[in-house]
Amino acid sequence: MNDLRDLYQEMILDHSKRPRNFGKLEGANHEASGYNPLCGDRFTVHIKVDDDIIREIRFEGSGCAISTASASLMTEGSKGKTLAEAETLFEKFHKLITGDAAEPQNAEALGKLLVFSGVKEFPVRVKCATLPWHTLKAALHDGHKVVSTE
């Protein structure tokens, strides 16, 4: 039960039930859709980039508690970051949830995203947590495309 409590922490449940920055974004200049064909999770990320900085970011779609909370917390964590900073954040996040190199200096950078550390005990759920981030990355790299976890 403890590892389940670690996975489904209150903040994750809160963000999955009441996702922040949910919906369309007027004036977005980057966007991409992400899809996990195994479970049907599907997200679209809309971003307004100005001067190399993520000024606004919102998302739409549906998925499990982990992927929805991840998308919600990703929008909070990446807003105001430069594109390079956002990508670095994804790298640190990915290391956190795959249990790869738990570098303590990452803790500060990850902030609220540390709540996902329980995912590493559930390897099959890593894709759920990373789907929104892969989508973000795709949106930043080229305008409009669909990425898949497979």
Partner: peptide
């Protein structure tokens, strides 16, 4: 209000194997 995948993960921790997904029947 609970995605089937989350049900599947929680049941699995109790040794209960079910299928959660679209069952290849979208």
């Amino acid at each position: 209000d609970v995605h089937p995948h989350d049900i599947g993960t929680i049941l699995d921790r109790d040794g209960v194997a079910i299928r959660a997904g679209h069952h290849c029947a979208m």
